[in-house]
């Protein structure tokens, strides 16, 4: 059970990583950049075991 929970933190981190990668690559569309940040928020707080 515990291992599955750890895997979920990895899955979250993987998705967060993809969002950050896209955010960094995005050079033109400001709106898209904001959206990447918004989706990142819950993932980051989860990964840091805050909420």
């Amino acid at each position: 059970m515990f291992i599955v929970m750890i895997i979920y933190y990895f899955i979250s981190a993987y998705i967060a990583g993809m969002l950050i990668w896209n955010f960094v690559r995005e050079k033109k569309d400001m709106q898209q950049m904001l959206l990447y940040l918004i989706v990142l928020v819950p993932l980051v707080l989860r990964i840091f075991h805050i909420r």
Binding site: K28, M30, M33, L34, V44, I50, R51
Partner: peptide
């Protein structure tokens, strides 16, 4: 200008997330 906006928005999000994170903690 774009990387400026990018940096500023990262800072704003970091501040809001940290502030709320402290409240959750």
């Amino acid at each position: 200008r774009n990387s400026m906006i990018k940096t500023v928005s990262v800072i704003i999000f970091a501040v809001l997330t940290t502030w709320s994170g402290i409240q959750f903690y």
